[in-house]
Design a protein around this nucleic acid. Structure first.
Lengths: 206, 206
DNA sequence: ACCTTATTTAATAGCTCTATTAATTTATAA
DNA sequence: TTATAAATTAATAGAGCTATTAAATAAGGT
């Protein structure tokens, strides 16, 4: 019999699903389309993943982990607060630039599917609290030292997420609306990388 | 015969559609559900609007106009540049706060439906150019005067949109994730109103 | 009262989608 | 080579959705 050594098919189904889900979201993607994109029968999609839901979860889980890991990660502790912040923002941005479909997938699914949102809530609780506590502590110290204006940690976080995430949510619309070439769009994104950092750091000045 | 004087039904169908489309988007809302929500037969939805698509367009058109009017509007020309900017940002914010479902509706539909995106493109061209030109001119003057750091108009616009729009895109997720009460959520939104202005104005300091 | 037109409903055609099942092909171990 | 299990396909059940149609009801004008 054939053992499941390098089952190419399962992988290509997963990849096809990934592409389509990122493009169209869950409900607008049919298993038929996934099969076609993967170059196989639609029944095979169900053979490997049983339900569309399970397949989606495999993709979502994966993307969600990426999204979070881009947000919460260790930065070199030898740096100044400002440098740490810059590094974190840029890392977050870079993760999104490498996976520009993630914001759409996550926000679309979380806002339209209550069950997924509940699931998300429990995920949030599992986040490494220490990283956040540390962030909060350092921010408060900077404020005490007068190097940063008084600002709530949640506000700073929201600002960072707003600036980075929304760029990739709104980006495709901007691209079409302004009729940007692929090249010009790339340039716009690239320029926003430093612009985002600039806006956020300036917003912290006392 | 009955003339179409105060046909209550058509209106309640439109309102029901509005609620559901804003909540779930186009594809996840069925005309059956719209009929139910409006308290009538599903066939009646088609009787008044012929197709789901036309009904959606009636809603979308309406919401889109709101969205744009909140963005591009005359402000008192006696004010300083900073005050004008503050007024515009707050007006934009207020429009979104009054219609928090709009960003989801617009971005969801524009990213999943290419036809609608094309339509959107032609709409953009019809925007009052004078307002934008004026904005650009005033910004450049402020930069020349050294009161504002050098920044491209498109960057400033993107920042404003990012800060305001993304708040209402991400908001519902934040609310659930952090388990905020209705009251606390309102408070968060309210505090972001001034925080957004603060971030944007600070980001312009030379 | 009667005719005409508007409103509303029930029924259904026709489509697409998910998931399953039974049958077929492929690969491999013995 | 043959038996066996995995991989793949074709077919289809069953559900939901949009849109239409024909019939029923309401309402107003004359």
């Amino acid at each position: 019999m054939k053992i499941n050594n390098d089952s190419n098919t399962e992988k290509s189904i997963l990849e096809a699903a990934e592409r389509l889900f990122l493009q169209k979201g869950f409900s607008l993607t049919s298993t038929t389309a996934i099969g076609k994109e993967a170059g196989c029968n639609q029944a095979l999609v169900h053979y490997y993943f049983r339900t569309k839901e399970r397949l989606f979860e495999a993709v979502f889980e994966n993307k969600f982990r990426l999204f979070v890991s881009g947000l919460v990660q260790k930065v070199d502790s030898g740096l100044s607060f400002e440098e740490k912040l810059r590094t974190a923002i840029e890392a977050h941005y870079d993760m999104l630039a490498a996976n520009p479909g993630i914001p759409f997938l996550i926000f679309n699914e979380l806002t339209t599917n209550p069950r997924r949102l509940e699931n998300f809530k429990s995920r949030i609780r599992e986040l490494p609290v220490t990283v956040l506590k540390q962030f909060q502590k350092e921010l408060e110290e900077e404020i005490k030292k007068g190097k940063v204006r008084p600002v709530a940690p949640v506000d700073l976080l929201l600002t960072i997420i707003s600036m980075n995430v929304s760029l990739f949510l709104v980006g495709p619309v901007i691209k079409t609306a302004l009729d940007l070439s692929e090249r010009d769009y790339k340039k716009l994104l690239e320029s926003r990388r430093s612009e985002n950092v600039a806006v956020i750091l300036r917003s912290l000045r006392p």
